[in-house]
Simulated scan of single mutants.
Amino acid sequence: MSTTADVDNAVTYSWSNGRTWRSLDRQSRITFLNGVEEGLMLMRREAELPGSVPLPTLQKQSERLMISGFRFSDIVEQIDAFYADSSNRRIPIVDAYIYALRKMKGESEDTLRQLTASLRQRYNR
């Protein structure tokens, strides 16, 4: 049975974090990431409506948040590795997702270390 403390620890600033991620089975993790990508696609479609954010701007941002040539299971493995370090567990899943994409796109280890340190400082209060 979950306690209020368990639920409170599973979110950081209303965002699901590593504790939530680690409670999900592999298929649920893949489904979670599919939902993130579907949300990005929904945003792109809505941007095509009159009066919306200029589409090229939104396309550039959404491309930064997506990666081709990989499966969701590949991203799951990267996020799993990120949360294997208990110091990262309070970091929201969306930030771990961005970290994983940057790593998969070839960011340098030094840049990734700086990003991790910044995220820890922000969320591990």
Rank of each mutant, 00 (worst) to 15 (best):
Q121N: 15
S62A: 15
D110F: 11
T12M: 02
D6C: 02
I67E: 08
F70S: 02
R89W: 04
S73N: 10
F70N: 01
Q27M: 01
F70V: 03
D85T: 07
R44H: 13
Y83N: 05
R29I: 01
L49D: 09
E77S: 02
I91A: 01
P54R: 14
F70W: 08
E37G: 06
L33T: 00
D110P: 00
L55R: 04
D8W: 04
Q59T: 11
F70D: 01
M1A: 12
N124S: 12
I93E: 01
T4V: 11
L119E: 06
A10N: 09
T3Y: 11
Y99T: 01
Y123V: 02
A47K: 03
Q78F: 11
I75T: 02
E63W: 04
N9I: 03
I75V: 13
K60A: 11
R64Q: 13
M43A: 13
E63D: 14
Q27V: 00
L112Y: 13
S52I: 04
G35W: 08
E107V: 01
L58G: 07
N88F: 09
S2E: 10
I75N: 01
I98Y: 04
K103M: 12
A84E: 12
G39S: 11
L115Q: 11
A96H: 07
G18A: 07
Q114D: 08
E63K: 13
L33M: 10
V76Q: 00
I75F: 01
G106E: 14
V36E: 14
E46I: 09
A84D: 10
I91E: 02
T3V: 06
I91M: 02
D74G: 05
V94W: 14
F72C: 00
R29S: 04
N124T: 09
Y99H: 13
M43C: 10
Y123I: 03
Q61P: 00
R44E: 15
G51T: 11
T31M: 09
R29A: 00
S118A: 15
E38V: 12
D80W: 00
S87C: 06
S28D: 13
G51V: 05
S87Q: 15
S86Q: 12
Q61G: 00
A96Y: 03
A47C: 11
Q121I: 08
I75D: 03
M66I: 07
K105C: 14
D25W: 05
K105Q: 13
S118Y: 09
S62L: 14
D74K: 03
K105D: 13
V76E: 01
N34F: 07
W15I: 05
S14A: 05
L119A: 04
P54L: 04
